[in-house]
Simulated scan of single mutants.
Amino acid sequence: MHARFLLALTPLLFTSLAHAAVNCDNATNQATMNQCASLQQAAADKELNTLYQQITSRLKGNPDGKKLLVGAQRSWVAFRDAECQFSASGVEGGSVYPLIYSNCVTQLTKARVETFKTYLKCQEGDLGCPVPGV
């Protein structure tokens, strides 16, 4: 029984080691490039989520504004995913698809990050800004 458990965990162990050992600066094969693109996408998503939480925290006294943000973010995610599916559709089914798709998601996510950073820089009294300043 212990042998089955270890065999079941083996792929997880190798996956964890592969993430730790990947050298994105010198990626020379498609699998590594795809993995690196996925890691960059995850990093951009993490930054976006951190900023999103900061904005929702500032909107805690404004439930209507928070509701609008949630709706806008859901719509933006749907747009991002649809846009990147379209953008990568020319290579759908190919080994480069994950790279093209992830790069698109990363690029659009970074643009959204910049928008959120702008929202977080709002000054008190700026009527054109939906997020209250600190």
Rank of each mutant, 00 (worst) to 15 (best):
V113S: 00
G125N: 10
Q30E: 08
A78R: 07
P132E: 04
V113E: 03
I55F: 02
H19M: 08
R58N: 03
Y52H: 01
L39E: 02
L6W: 07
S16T: 13
N26H: 14
T50E: 05
Q73K: 09
G128K: 15
N23R: 09
L68Y: 07
V105K: 01
G65P: 00
A111R: 12
A72D: 09
A31R: 05
D81Q: 06
C36P: 00
N62P: 08
G90V: 11
S38G: 15
Q123W: 04
A42T: 08
N103R: 04
L9T: 13
C24V: 08
S75R: 15
P63L: 05
D25P: 14
E47W: 01
T109G: 02
W76N: 02
N49G: 07
E114H: 13
N26D: 12
F86V: 15
Q40S: 04
A88P: 02
Q53M: 13
K66N: 07
A3Y: 13
K117Y: 02
C36N: 03
H2W: 11
A27P: 05
Q40F: 09
I55C: 02
M33F: 05
K46P: 12
V105A: 04
V91L: 01
K117L: 09
Q41A: 03
D64Y: 15
M1C: 15
R4D: 15
V131T: 03
K66C: 10
N62G: 04
L59M: 11
K46I: 08
P130C: 03
C24E: 03
R4T: 12
N29L: 07
T118I: 10
P63M: 05
T15N: 13
L99E: 00
T32V: 10
L39F: 08
E124H: 07
F116H: 01
D45Q: 04
N34Y: 01
D81I: 09
L17W: 12
T118H: 11
A88Y: 00
